[in-house]
């Protein structure tokens, strides 16, 4: 499946290809993002790492790192 993902740290929207039935964890792995450093939101609702990705859009990755 193809997903539209926004990563705030890079301020870009990306299209990511993943196997069907993938989880949030798989997505982060594919994007080479350490789960400790982000929270993931789908439609403004925080989702946990083991959650399966059903929606194809409205996925937001929010950096938790303080900016200075």
């Amino acid at each position: 499946m193809k997903l539209n993902v926004f990563y705030d740290r890079e301020n870009t929207e990306k299209t990511i290809e993943l196997a069907d039935n993938s989880s949030v964890k798989d997505l982060l792995k594919k994007m080479k993002i350490n789960p400790v450093t982000v929270i993931v939101g789908i439609k403004d609702q925080i989702v946990l790492e083991d959650e399966k990705l059903k929606d194809k859009g409205n996925i937001k990755i929010i950096s938790v790192i303080s900016g200075g």
Partner: peptide, 18 residues
């Protein structure tokens, strides 16, 4: 840091990333 971000996000304190 992650807990703090989740708290901030849940309580609408989180702004755009800067």
């Amino acid at each position: 840091e992650k807990e703090t971000a989740i708290y901030a996000y849940s309580n609408n304190l989180l702004d755009n990333f800067t």
